[in-house]
Design a protein around this nucleic acid. Structure first.
Length: 1072
RNA sequence: CCGGAUGUGGUGAAAUUGGUAGACACGUCAGACUUAGGAUCUGAUGCCGCAAGGUGUGGGGGUUCGAGUCCCUCCAUCCGGACCA
């Protein structure tokens, strides 16, 4: 009776499917256990041997838990929306739905080959409308919710509306985002619907805004960061610029603290927790306001200008500003002054009963006329060319003004000139329909006197070490404060920065920046501090502006050195003049009232003083930004949103799922919107044209597995309460900060809304390492069709060529296969051999088709069987570690399984298992193994577990043990690792039900106890001999035994030992 | 640049708490059985050395009776950095 794995594996896989062994019920008296794999993206390339590593580990654990008496949920599905399918569609014209379906079929076949115990009746696919109906539904819940910071949980947006109706935006009840002006309940009720909705949008957990994307005009598409190299597209090398597009976001920042705190109650590796908390990047420090020195403008054109720098949102234009706007295309307007002057004549001097301001600047834009008390802006459009630039400019401005609840009235030159009275009448009408609202005036007055620069710092203690300020290039003050003489230089710098991706900005060591000509005033010393612009300051973090302290911050230091900015030393001898010292423990020097204080103690002192002065406040900051939740792509979940007059209106739940329509072209829309913008039926309904990103569906799939066929709810509460958290989650570290954070946020949200009863999705997370490819090289003699073996290549001039690993046996090239490889390209090649063989070179790299180093698990399973494959993957090394794949080593595991088989059966005699009682040695092997396997399995040390199986098999073979009482428990132990062979032998032994329903054996300590131990004896820490000593020997007895020993005496050379260290059950060390 | 991980024989690795470094395998060498072996079995195998012995866990330094393991420092490789999933 031979080990015929092909027959055996096929037979049992069919049996398991036919009898539904892996079907799991939501009702059970057993305790539950949920083992989950990160579901795969079904790529066209199929599985390579690296993919199943985690699946095998989880499969072993799931089977192990089942044998231990748990009701185990172990499902699998597909993360099936995503860019590659769309790219494939563009390249090959095959619809993503079709290629995805094909890929899934192929994946399933490959997975089935390996004998996993998934309950396939619970499969989910994120691209299935039955599934994404609920992704859309959850999105709607996020859209219809806001984060109540006072309660520290999400709530329905309706609660917020009620607050506004009763109290307005009262900051003692509700926080007020930066873009929302303060308002009263009465004001709220008088706001237009649009104004109200715009305010609510500032609170919604899923919200819409404008974000920058990498836009490639030539390709007509939005690119991922890694598709942009050196400012040009990776494909084609076309220029890439940043472009603002409408984007959806998830307000994950509201959950930052809870995501951080939640890490304390989950079992993730420390590395994983650290990565997540670094990503969240909580830091505490202070926001400090610096006054800016008055910036005299050269005067001239636009002379209504005030000579003063003014506040953040409102200021009167000055000359330089006027020039910027001209750059944006105002020069295209005709007859500007004429129409403007005519109207101005009719509305100036309170002719409308209210003050009208001419050429007033709001938030960096100049408007023609403004009536601040009524929040009205009047624009007169010339017959300018409808350029792209002008359009974007207008749109952006209108959006901006809307955010402040300002209504924009537009008239054309013609209208004004030909029918001035009508225009004035219209203005008056609108004016009368509006309530007077002086908040803008108040705001202007408050900020109107001088401009301030707000910086965020974690080190307020270093305030006397500030030598310069740096603004991010996108900072709104940049253009405002730049003086005339630095104008051109700053503009050039900004356009340089615009051409670079954020990734490049972070990656390059180059120090760049430019002086704006402006100065900030030190709040304590009154010193003038130059203000610079540099890309090393990121707009998205803090306030987008920093106070630079070169002696304490490395980046500031390099910057100061590079631009020869004098450095103030505030830490005395702790600063050596060569490099910054970021210490918190130095004594402060040159720091006025802080002198002599330890830095970390000074932090509080400075914050206290700033707060008293009203120019600073304590501030907690997060590096994490809100998550961009839309893609300008086709193959994703459509947003259940309709746009109406600039208001996003959610579809009714009954209309879900909003099905992804069929498209013929995957080209993006004209303005860079997603391909859905090209479908008339879609745009006619004013449906949102973006789609959701890849992580939408994966943020909650673990819940759907619990109740996969529910058509009424995303997951019944009873089911989610029964299964609860995922007890064990296995997947790669590459998802450390993306998927894991998003799914944790969704879980917390669903918990806040009371739809599930737990707020952390995963109890324990194990990260499997990558299996790398082991590439093989042949060396072609330059200019000839001749290849030289690895060891002899130094004698020739050669070019290395990657060769398919599958035609190399270890490092020996299969020459015949090589000749046939690549349609016989090398059919006539000659070979220079060493010892009659062609030896290849090898290198470890990422496994990929293009490197010819992928190995298909199907081939391995065909040659050695699934059980061997499973065990070999585990035997390679610790699951968490990355390691290269080498098919050659699999023989060892294969031999092991054959040897294991021979404990039960032999070729000639058939089954040879006896019912004789086991000997002491046999029991010792068995119980030692039970203990080791259980402990190793529990702590995920599968490689050592496999080795323990080998040791047990070797020992039992030596003992010629074929006894049922030893082998049956061993069979159960091995089942999780090699299910097919165990099921076969189990039935051979006369059982008729699946081995998975057996009970895991327990070890008995009494078979393991020893009375003596072989102690290593070291002299001065070097092991010299061994001594067998009774385990219960005491120090005195041991010392005598040791000193009597011949070898010890030899090493002592007559000297007497200073000390004898005896550690029970460990070792003995003699110190001379 | 920032963040994370990993460096141990020719190769994958083991050493769970500071206590015999290299378990278990691959490979290699020698041998047995055999018509044959890409089956099976036995033995050897870190390096230097005939041996005694010396030496050895990326490099350097430290703590300790004792360091692969703890501390400092340097180096190398791999992974991630938000539209690849």
């Amino acid at each position: 009776m031979e080990y015929k794995f092909r027959e055996i594996e096929k037979k049992w896989q069919q049996y398991w499917t036919a009898t539904g062994v892996y079907k799991v019920s939501n009702n059970s008296n057993k305790p539950k256990y949920y083992v989950l794999d990160m579901f795969p993206y079904p790529s066209g390339a199929g599985l390579h041997v690296g993919h199943p590593l985690g699946y095998i580990a989880s499969d072993i654990y799931a089977r192990f838990k089942r044998l231990k008496g748990f009701n185990v949920l172990h499902p699998m599905g597909y993360d099936a929306f995503g860019l590659p399918a769309e790219q494939y569609a563009i390249d090959h014209g095959i619809h993503p739905a079709v290629s995805t379906e094909n890929n899934i079929r192929n994946f399933r076949k490959q997975l089935d080959n390996i004998g996993f115990c998934y309950d396939w009746s619970r499969e989910v696919r994120t691209c299935d409308p039955k599934y994404y109906k609920w992704t859309q539904w959850i999105f709607l819940q996020l859209f219809n919710s806001w984060y109540n910071r006072k309660q520290n949980r999400a709530e329905k947006i309706q609660n917020l509306v009620t607050i506004f109706e009763n109290y307005g935006c009262d900051e003692s009840i509700v926080h007020r985002p930066g873009n929302v002006p303060p308002f009263t309940a009465t004001e709220w009720k008088r706001f237009s619907e649009k104004q109200q909705q715009d305010i609510l949008m500032e609170y919604r957990l899923a919200y819409c805004g404008y974000g920058e994307v990498n836009w490639c005009e030539a390709l007509g598409t939005v690119l991922a960061n890694d598709e942009v190299v050196n400012g040009v597209s990776e494909r084609g090398g076309f220029p890439v610029v940043k472009k603002k597009l409408r984007q959806w976001y998830l307000r994950i920042t509201e959950y930052a603290d809870r995501l951080l705190e939640g890490l304390e109650k989950v079992e993730f590796s420390d590395a994983m927790k650290e990565m997540q908390s670094n990503w969240i990047g909580k830091s505490s420090g202070a926001e400090i306001e610096f006054r800016l020195t008055p910036n005299p403008s050269p005067g001239g054109e636009g002379s209504t200008a005030s000579q003063e720098m003014t506040g953040k949102f409102f200021k009167t234009a000055n000359t330089r500003f006027w020039q910027i706007l001209k750059q944006y295309g105002r020069e295209n307007r005709k007859n500007q002054t004429e129409a403007e002057n005519i109207l101005w004549g009719k509305i100036r001097n309170n002719q409308l009963g209210i003050k009208v301001r001419r050429q007033h600047s709001i938030g960096g834009y100049i408007v023609d006329f403004a009536i601040l008390e009524k929040r009205i802006v009047i624009e007169i459009d010339g017959a300018y060319h409808h350029t792209e630039e002008q359009k974007i400019f207008d749109e952006t401005r209108t959006e901006f003004l809307k955010e402040f609840g300002i209504e924009v009235l537009r008239f054309t030159n013609q209208e004004v000139i030909e029918n001035t009275a009508n225009v004035v009448k219209k203005i008056a009408e609108v004016l009368n329909s509006k309530q007077t609202d002086t908040s803008l005036l108040r705001e202007e007055k408050r900020q109107g006197d001088e401009a301030k620069l707000t910086v965020y710092t974690t080190r307020p203690d270093t305030i006397f070490g500030v030598d310069f300020m740096v603004l991010a290039p996108e900072h709104e003050l940049v253009e405002e404060i730049t003086t005339g003489e630095h104008w051109q230089e700053v503009q050039d710098y900004l356009s340089y920065v615009k051409s670079r991706s954020e990734r490049e900005r972070m990656a390059e060591k180059k120090i760049t920046g430019v002086f704006t000509g402006a100065y900030a005033i030190h709040p304590f010393s009154g010193k003038k501090i130059p203000v610079w612009v540099s890309e090393y300051v990121l707009i998205g973090y803090g306030t987008g502006a920093i106070m630079a302290v070169p002696c304490g911050d490395e980046r500031d230091h390099r910057f100061a050195k590079h631009f020869n900015i004098p450095i103030t030393n505030i830490i005395g001898s702790e600063y050596n003049g060569e490099e910054a010292n970021p210490t918190r423990d130095a004594i402060l020097h040159n720091s006025d009232f802080l002198n002599g204080m330890v830095m970390k103690d000074a932090i509080e002192v400075v914050i206290g003083k700033l707060e008293k002065m009203g120019i600073g406040k304590r501030k907690v900051n997060y590096k994490m930004r809100d998550a961009a939740f839309s893609r300008q792509r086709y193959w994703g979940e459509p947003f259940p949103i309709v746009w109406k007059n600039g208001i996003a209106i959610p579809l009714d739940e009954k209309e879900l799922p909003l099905q992804l329509p069929h498209v013929e072209s995957y080209k993006p829309g004209r303005e860079g919107e997603g391909p859905l913008a090209n479908i008339p039926e879609w745009t006619e309904r004013n449906l949102e044209t973006n789609t959701m990103p890849g992580y939408a569906g994966s943020s909650w799939y673990f819940l759907r597995y619990m109740d996969p066929h529910n058509e009424e709810e995303f997951c019944n509460r009873k089911a989610s309460d029964y299964w609860g958290q995922v007890d064990l989650y296995i997947g790669g570290t590459e998802h450390a900060v993306g998927h894991l954070l998003y799914s944790r946020m969704w879980t917390k949200f669903l918990y806040d809304m009371n739809w599930i009863g737990h707020d952390e999705p995963y109890k324990r997370l194990v990260n499997q390492g990558m299996i790398q490819g082991s590439s093989r090289f042949v060396y072609r003699v330059t200019g000839k069709n001749k290849f030289v073996s690895f060891g002899l290549k130094e004698n020739y001039q050669t070019t290395p060529i990657r060769v398919d690993v599958n035609i190399v046996d270890g490092v020996e090239l299969n020459i015949e296969a090589f000749k046939k490889w690549r349609s016989g390209e090398y059919a006539n090649a000659e070979f220079i051999l060493e010892d009659g063989k062609y030896i290849c070179g090898l290198e470890t790299e990422k496994m990929s088709k293009s490197k010819f180093n992928t190995v298909n698990p199907d081939d391995i399973v065909e040659k050695y069987g699934a059980d061997t494959f499973r065990m070999y993957e585990m035997f390679l090394g610790p699951v968490e570690l990355s390691k290269p794949w080498d098919t050659k080593g699999i023989e060892g595991v294969y031999r092991f399984l054959k040897k294991f088989w021979r404990l039960f059966a032999q070729e000639q005699k058939g089954l040879i298992v006896t019912n004789e009682p086991a000997t002491k040695d046999e029991l010792k092997t068995l119980h030692k193994t039970i203990k080791k396997i259980e402990e190793d399995t529990e702590r995920f040390s599968f490689n050592t577990a496999v080795s323990a199986f080998m040791i047990a098999t070797n020992e039992l073979t030596d003992l010629k043990c074929h006894k049922r009482s030893v082998l049956e428990p061993l069979l159960i132990l091995l089942t999780p690792y090699a299910p097919h062979i165990c099921e076969e032998l189990w039935h051979q032994l006369g059982h008729s039900t699946t081995i998975l329903d057996e009970v895991y054996p327990a070890w008995n300590e009494q078979y393991l106890v020893e009375s003596t131990k072989n102690y290593p004896v070291a002299i001065n820490g070097k092991t010299r001999t061994e001594l067998t000593i009774e385990l219960d020997a005491n120090q005195e007895q041991v010392e005598k035994l040791v000193l009597d020993n011949e070898i010890v005496q030899k090493w002592l050379e007559g000297k007497s030992p200073r000390k004898i260290i005896y550690v029970k059950n460990k070792m003995i060390n003699v110190v001379v």
